[in-house]
Design a protein around this nucleic acid. Structure first.
Lengths: 162, 162
DNA sequence: CATGGTTAAATGCAAATGCATGAAGTAGTC
DNA sequence: GACTACTTCATGCATTTGCATTTAACCATG
């Protein structure tokens, strides 16, 4: 129950950590240099914009984004502060609320996507053939822990990430 | 120069971000539950323990670990506070210093490795054949940005990560 | 050996994170 | 309906990060 990992597995782990960190950094830096907010904002805006009425319960957002609860709560604060989303009362469950994306939010999401997608292309797309990208996905998916929903993320016109 | 990424590339990016985050979290949690400090400490201790006389210049550590300068500086503070390393004067360059691992540091590194390796096995090794791990490495290495030194990380008896 | 440019490392301050807890509501059970 | 257990969300507080700046030392050049 406590066997050691093979050196191959260890090497894969190392690569996974280092490469992700590097690529993420690169993309985030590009985005920041272009004057945009952090990626997490984009992810949240995308999730909201995709949701049925442009609104979601914080709990749902939290699950989609794999963020801790308090983190989601504060992210929403910031979006609201910037006028990118609004909090709405939730009639059916008075504990809760809905977070609805605003027009400004949708616009920022679109603008960010053009910078973001350029980053993905630059730091991922251009280094991998489509076939290899597919292989990479396949291998990574096998590491997807107990979390059936990961594969459900259709890539429509943007990534939902982190 | 600003072409859009293929959906394959985008999907790979998403997987890379999500899977890494999940796996890292899982391993870090296991480690924390076992009462150990964060992974970054392990990485630093490992680098130090491998270095010629068990000592490195902060700059070098910084490069190995892909951390910002101030972050390394503070990490060293913490290691020193806990008696896991000591700062030594650097005769040849009075600006600088050496950081030397202590016996306590080496011991912690070894102890952490047994928990850490169990985590790698549990969250990576057990989900991938050795052959697939090798394939994964190969694909990830192609994303390794302008940074020739990444591949130089021999996997001796532990991962150096992040 | 003065002097302007560069590198090593630390640090003050603001913002972000993690953790634990609290307040308010829902839901099942008796 | 009263009680207990659980869910949703916010928040105070300590720690950690990120950023910009500072201090000190090196180094090349004239």
């Amino acid at each position: 129950m406590k066997r050691k990992p093979s050196t191959e597995a260890t090497a894969a782990w190392i690569r996974l950590m280092r490469v992700q960190s590097r690529v993420l950094n690169a993309v985030e830096q590009d985005l920041k240099k272009a004057g945009f907010p952090p990626l997490a904002w984009y992810d949240a805006l995308l999730e909201l914009s995709r949701a049925p009425a442009g609104e979601l319960r914080p709990v749902e957002l939290e699950k989609q984004m794999l963020l801790p609860q308090y983190s989601t709560s504060r992210l929403i604060d910031r979006l609201v502060d910037e006028g990118l989303a609004v909090r709405r009362e939730c009639k059916i469950d008075k504990r809760g609320q809905f977070v609805e994306i605003t027009e400004a939010g949708r616009e920022l999401q679109r603008k960010m996507w053009s910078a973001y997608s350029a980053g993905i292309e630059k730091h991922v797309g251009s280094k991998l053939s489509d076939a290899d990208a597919v292989k990479l996905c396949g291998l990574l998916d096998r590491l997807g822990c107990s979390c059936g929903e990961a594969a459900s993320l259709a890539v429509k016109d943007g990534a939902a990430v982190r």
